[in-house]
Nucleic acid binder design. Structure first.
Length: 599
DNA sequence: CGGCGCGGCGCC
DNA sequence: AAAGGGCGCCGCGCCG
């Protein structure tokens, strides 16, 4: 058990049992070597304040670690979870002021006045009873190593003692929580995600600039001079202006365009593609095409290539835990919104290939398992869950099953989706009850919690103000309508939160289990042109999109990697849902280009 | 000039 | 009239 911390740009690595006797005190240049040595010696779980501040430098130096505990991400979970509500209400567990808010809780300052919590001798991560089903090592028992970087952001030194105290606080909260096992798993998975996010940034997505440019040229025309638009875009713009009889309309200005459309007799209230599509007019088709091309140009055009692709890699900045539900965010490059049209540019290196896998209908399956809804789980067993729902006679066709399920999870009340939801409720009452309960809790302003213990934020001022106004004696019917509307809106958020958030946990556990499996492959010889970090010379994750992953692997390991991807998906299911009979089938492919994975 | 809200749209 | 959840990024247009 070790801690590393820093004071004045020095890093200390410390065993928490003997915090006053650092195992190493080094400058940042020597830190990677020290970590490498201690990691090899005792295989510890490194504890540090923020993975994204410390780990990139280790990776840069070729040092990879197996496990960590990210104090900031874990605090963000623990300080909000309903599972720790009791222990938090004791007042003994205020977050230390030096620990920044988690990525999804910006503005939520840590509570002041830390109180010394009794030292807990529990280990955070021992999960003996699950060791046999945890292939990851992600959540197994292990010694504790703590590292902190100092103060990174505001220059204030965070002492070793502060870090040790915070780890103790978190361990105590977990131990005294309503479900220590679930929280241990969640914190381990969240921390593994932090490692993976940093590693995927360091590795980068293999990106073939020439392929991307070919797509742009075929779709948009040749790259224009600065300040000009590509030929195909200009041609469509001219067609739209001609059809609208508005030679000077600025198609990129919503106001200008809307005015021109109405002048031409197209009665729309917005310029959204959805609404435009309802109308029949010669300007519509070229306008929709124009918008599509402009989207590609501005979001993933030549400027994007210049900014984000270097040395054959796209390196987005991942933000693990970046959203309230626990899904990741990205902070640049739009990595989670890569349009399908440019995915052909994701091409494996020579001699390497891509293992692409996504979990089929992840969210409905997670819902079925969470709700212990045997009928719904059975609909998905060994088949497309939507087809299973059709075969059970609940609805007539797959499209209906899909919109009904989405409607149930998102809270649709009207339209095709809303009409189908009641049929779903009759067939799968337990699943429906779970999401309905989450919605009702949210409407009341309450907090809901995922399968492993990530809780939703409390509703904001908008909700409170609206409810307060509606409960005044002089409240108008408009006030009451407004309050109901705001409440339902929050209810739709909490309804979806439990499903989306629990699905995110499944995906995290999947990756956390897969990562050590990939690390077991022997490194391949480093090609002269590529001397990257060690994990870049073995199969490694390069992309993660909510329920989908890409592993970049030497060709000779592809089949084994694909097997590991499947095995760890099953392992994640067992870890989260035990023996409950629910399937999480993957659609996977071994391909040289991401675009071929859809076939 | 930068900051910000909005409409719109890409992904899940 | 009300309207399915979560995101990030773009350009526009307004603001100071």
């Amino acid at each position: 058990m070790i801690i590393a911390g820093t004071e004045r740009a020095r890093f200390a690595i410390v065993d928490p049992a003997r915090p006053s006797q650092p195992l190493a005190v080094v400058g940042s240049d020597e830190l990677p070597a020290a970590v490498r040595e201690l990691d090899a010696a005792s295989h510890p779980r490194w504890v540090w304040a923020e993975t994204h501040l410390l780990y990139p430098a280790l990776l840069e130096a070729g040092v990879r670690v197996d496990r960590c505990h990210d104090l900031r991400l874990c605090a963000a979970i623990l300080d909000r979870s309903t599972l720790t509500e009791q222990v938090r209400s004791s007042g003994r567990h205020g977050r230390p002021p030096w620990l920044p808010p988690g990525p999804a809780e910006a503005g939520t300052a840590g509570a002041a006045a830390p109180v010394a919590a009794g030292r807990s001798h529990d280990t955070l991560f021992e999960l003996d009873e699950f060791a046999d089903i945890d292939p990851a090592g992600a959540v197994d028992e292990g010694s504790d190593v703590r590292a902190s970087d100092t103060g990174a952001t505001d220059g204030s030194a965070v002492t070793i003692e502060s870090l040790a105290r915070e780890l103790d606080r978190q361990q105590a909260m977990v131990a005294e929580s309503a479900d220590p096992r679930a929280l241990r798993l969640l914190l381990a998975a969240e921390s593994a995600g932090a490692l993976i996010g940093a590693e995927m940034h360091a590795a980068g997505i293999p990106w073939d600039r020439a392929v991307h440019e070919r797509v742009l040229e075929q779709t948009l025309g040749a790259r224009p001079k600065p300040g000009f638009k590509p030929a195909h875009v200009e041609r469509l713009a001219a067609a739209v202006r001609a059809a609208l009889a508005g030679p000077s309309v600025n198609l990129d200005s919503q106001v200008d365009l809307l005015r021109a459309l109405r002048r031409a007799g197209i009665q729309v209230d917005s310029t959204s593609r959805w609404e435009l599509g309802e109308h029949d007019h010669p300007a519509i088709e070229p306008l929709i095409a124009y918008k599509k091309l402009m989207r590609l140009l501005s979001a993933n055009g030549w400027a994007w290539l210049d900014e984000w692709v270097h040395d054959g890699r796209f390196r987005p900045d991942y933000v693990p835990g970046g959203t309230a539900t626990g899904r990741w965010a990205t902070s640049g490059g739009g990595a989670l919104q890569l349009p399908k049209i440019v995915r052909s540019a994701v091409v494996a290196d020579p001699g390497w290939t891509l293992v692409v896998a996504d979990a089929a209908q992840l969210e409905p399956r997670v819902l079925a398992a969470m709700a212990r809804d045997e009928a719904m789980a059975a609909a998905g067993r060994g088949r497309d869950i939507y087809r299973g729902i059709v075969e059970s006679g609940v609805v007539e066709n797959r499209d209906q099953a899909k919109v009904a399920i989405l409607g149930a999870m998102y809270g649709a009340t009207t339209g095709d989706s809303g009409r189908l939801v009641p049929r779903l409720a009759r067939a799968y009452p337990r699943a429906m009850a779970l999401v309905d309960r989450a919605a009702a809790t949210g409407e009341r302003g309450g907090v809901v919690t995922t399968n492993l213990g990530r809780s939703s934020p409390s509703p904001g001022d908008g909700w409170r103000v609206a409810q307060a106004q509606a409960s005044q004696p002089e409240a108008t019917p408009a006030d009451e309508r407004r309050a109901r509307s705001v409440a339902r809106e929050w209810g739709r958020f909490t309804r979806n939160f439990v499903v989306q958030g629990s699905a995110a946990e499944w995906a995290l556990c999947w990756m956390a289990a897969l990562r050590p499996r990939l690390a077991q492959f022997a490194p391949v010889a480093t090609p002269a042109e590529r001397s990257g970090p060690v994990f870049e010379r073995m199969p490694h994750l390069v992309y993660f999109l909510h329920d989908e992953i890409i592993v970049h692997t030497p060709r000779e390991h592809a089949d084994e990697v694909a097997a590991a991807v499947h095995e760890t998906a099953h392992a994640a299911a067992r870890l989260l849902f035990g023996d409950f009979p629910v399937d999480f089938p993957l659609e996977s492919a071994i391909v040289d280009s991401y675009a071929m994975a859809d076939a």
